[in-house]
């Protein structure tokens, strides 16, 4: 019985991995997008930034729907009550002491969130990677004892925040384990490492990741996801501008 089960499990595993064995860079990235993008999600967590000001932690609650819509609300510290709403075309900031919602566009999206190593774009950008980047498979490499594909992404448009990205993608779980973001000439902009993963509804996603903005001195940010629910029913009203002041 147990032998049959073992053979069955092995067959299923091979069947799952088979489509990506000998896969092209495009197939790998498409699989990565499919694994990390959800129809809807709700998460809670905290961001810890260590820099010249010391160590600061801000807790947050986030909702996302589709590829382009998300809302992050900060729930502690000096930023308590601040919200970031991302829609397909714009990014809005809500501050509790301000009458009006502030719309960010263009280069402003690359500003730091809460003085961390993360930008607004880092926190909210979703979407189809292959529509924005040209992917090239550089080879295979082990990172933290995990066999990874190394894929280089080159931006199709000059407006992309990161002209090149090098991703180390876990071959088993199709999740990014490490990323290096750089200019087109190769100058490093940011580095990201996944420290811990978790499984949600059969998918492995990052639970704790560390981001370093290479343009800042002695600074790094760790993002912890404490809870993540995916593919749940979310009302469109959550993402309405008029509801930001709740």
């Amino acid at each position: 019985m147990s032998r049959k089960f073992l053979i069955l499990t092995l067959c299923l595993s091979v069947a799952t991995l088979l489509p990506l064995m000998g896969a092209t860079a495009q197939q790998i990235i498409a699989a990565l997008d499919a694994n990390t993008h959800f129809s809807t999600s709700h998460s809670t967590g905290f961001i810890t930034t260590v820099d010249r000001f010391g160590t600061r932690t801000s807790t947050f609650e986030a909702w996302a729907k589709g590829e382009h819509t998300s809302l992050i609300a900060f729930t502690s510290g000096l930023e308590r009550g601040q919200k970031i709403l991302r829609t397909e075309s714009s990014l809005y900031l809500y501050y509790p002491d301000a009458d009006q919602v502030i719309r960010l566009q263009g280069a402003a999206l690359r500003q730091s969130v809460l003085g961390s190593d993360l930008s607004y774009e880092d926190l909210t950008k979703e979407g189809n990677t292959l529509s924005s980047y040209q992917a090239t498979l550089l080879g295979e490499e082990r990172f933290d004892d995990v066999l990874c594909w190394v894929v280089k992404l080159e931006a199709k448009s000059k407006s992309s925040a990161y002209p090149t990205q090098t991703l180390w993608i876990d071959q088993e779980h199709t999740v990014v384990r490490k990323a290096r973001y750089a200019t087109s000439s190769g100058r490093g902009l940011k580095e990201m490492e996944v420290i811990e993963t978790m499984e949600v509804n059969g998918r492995v996603v990052a639970k704790k990741s560390r981001v370093v903005d290479l343009l800042k001195k002695n600074s790094h940010t760790t993002m912890h996801i404490e809870s993540l629910e995916i593919d749940l029913a979310l009302s469109d009203a959550i993402f309405g501008l008029e509801n930001l002041s709740w």
């Binding site: 000001f53 000096l78 601040q82 501050y95 002491d97 301000a98 502030i102 500003q111 730091s112 809460l114």
Partner: peptide, 18 residues
Amino acid sequence: ERLTLLASTAAGSTNAMS
């Protein structure tokens, strides 16, 4: 009239007030 001011805080985050 009311104006909203957006500025970088001492710790590098942003804040706005009207």
